[in-house]
Simulated scan of single mutants.
Amino acid sequence: MISRRTLLGSLAATTAGLALAPRAFAQPAPLGSAAAGMPLHLVNATGAYDNASIRVYIVGNDGNQQVRVTPDGQLAPVALADNGPDGFTDYAIPLAASGTTTLNLPQMSGRIYVALGDPLKFKAVEDGNGKAALAYPAGWVEGDPNYPVLHDCAEFTYNSGGMYGNTTMVDMFSVPLEIKLNGAKEQTTGTLKDGARAKVFADVKAADGFGKLIVGDKRVIAPGHGLDSGLFATDHLAPAIDEAWSTYESKDLKVTTNAGTFTGRVGGGKLAFTGPGSVSFDKPSTRDVLFCDGTLAAPNDGTLGPVAAILGAALNRSILTTADAQPGTDPATFYRQQLTNHYAKAMHEATRDGKAYGFAFDDVAGFASYIEDGAPKEITLTLTAF
């Protein structure tokens, strides 16, 4: 399974937001061609906004360069000349006057953004290699030009191997989105329970230390981004992390990956594992846990990476000290501790299938709002009821 961590490749920061870094995939159709594509249906079921108030943006990369999809379903390269007099591009795809909007989705890897009310401001910039790239919306940054805009996105990779997609709350949650993928079978994920959007806002606001992550009625910011913005304590999870490191000073921790079972103990401040390979981890910070980065960064090496992912998931789900065999697979045991990722907890409780991408390693043990199909025929993105 392609996880969200490998779905899009790395994200490179720019001064105005995020730019999708290119990633090598199977060669898609040439630019300007709509031949290698499939139908993308866009459904407005918000009940709060009419079609004329909603704009869609499909942006990403084709393996070689950053691209966007035109309203007629073709790939076009991002170009600095696309910036208008206001300094921003106009890549918006309007919805049909009423009912379902159907577009051609070419082979590419990227995001489908939806903006409700006001348009999004994507700026074409020059990346470190001198190529045209996009500064993506960063709704968690107060100074970002898209901060006032109600928006959200789904992520996907569509290539010769199939379609891989997810609804993501890793950065923030704002617009309820559902993905339905038809191919070898019919799959749906991301669907929220009735009234769940309001409940997410209420639950996160009520959790001790998480209340500042609420931005009016527009969005809930993920705690990692809140930490970077001074809205979330830098040491919030420190006692839980300390407890985990202390627990495994006196007993073994077993972590099973596709490579086999690793056995770990804490000594000298490091959690060191033996088994299919020797890997070790310094004690992570709260930020490392929330971003699944730093000491918990997961390279695609088949050894260190999978162990890091499982540790990151266990710490976010607050199960590392309650089970000495990981990964945990019983969702009834997740988020039961007072010090936990209450943001991710709220996201999982909101969805009908219990799956969500509340943090970057939420795909561990299959709890992410992710679907894939090797023989895709069509995909539907629905903006569900507020």
Rank of each mutant, 00 (worst) to 15 (best):
A24D: 13
V67T: 10
N64I: 01
V279H: 11
A346S: 15
T384A: 09
P39S: 02
L227I: 06
G264S: 06
T6R: 08
T191M: 06
V266I: 12
G117E: 03
S109E: 07
F334V: 06
L20H: 12
V170W: 11
G230L: 09
L20R: 09
R352T: 15
A29W: 01
N316H: 07
A124E: 03
K218F: 05
I58V: 15
T333D: 07
P77Q: 08
G312N: 05
D324H: 14
L304A: 03
I241P: 09
Y248K: 07
A184E: 14
G32P: 11
G230D: 06
N64T: 14
L253V: 04
H236Y: 15
G277N: 15
A314V: 03
L213C: 06
S10V: 12
I93V: 12
K218I: 13
G143S: 14
A48I: 10
Q337M: 08
H225Y: 15
L231F: 07
K283A: 09
L75Q: 09
Q337P: 02
V220H: 06
A96R: 02
I221E: 01
D242C: 01
A19H: 09
V204P: 07
M172D: 13
T382W: 01
G302T: 06
N61F: 05
V59S: 03
N341Q: 09
S98K: 08
T351Q: 06
M38P: 02
D362F: 06
V56A: 07
K345L: 13
T321A: 07
S285D: 10
I371Q: 00
A132R: 13
G224T: 05
G110F: 01
F291A: 12
K199W: 03
A96C: 05
I2A: 05
T100H: 02
V255H: 06
T102A: 08
A79C: 02
P85A: 15
T15R: 10
H236F: 15
S53W: 04
K121W: 00
K345D: 14
A135Q: 11
L120M: 11
F232E: 02
L383M: 15
A96I: 00
R219P: 11
D293F: 13
L31E: 10
Y335E: 03
G99T: 08
H236L: 14
Y57P: 04
W140R: 00
A21H: 04
S3C: 03
P284Y: 01
Y370E: 13
R5D: 14
F262Y: 15
L192V: 05
A115L: 02
T101C: 02
G165L: 10
L231Q: 10
Y248N: 05
K355H: 13
T247S: 07
D194N: 09
G354S: 08
F291Y: 12
A206F: 02
T263K: 08
I310C: 00
F122Q: 03
F232M: 03
I310S: 00
G305K: 11
P299E: 02
T70W: 03
D242G: 00
A16P: 00
H342W: 11
A356K: 04
A21N: 13
K193Q: 08
K205C: 00
G63P: 05
G275R: 05
E155P: 04
T382Y: 05
F25C: 05
T261M: 03
Q187S: 13
G117H: 03
G99K: 01
A313V: 02
T100E: 15
E243H: 07
Y49G: 01
R68D: 01
Q187T: 13
L383C: 00
A308P: 09
R287Q: 14
L80E: 09
V175E: 08
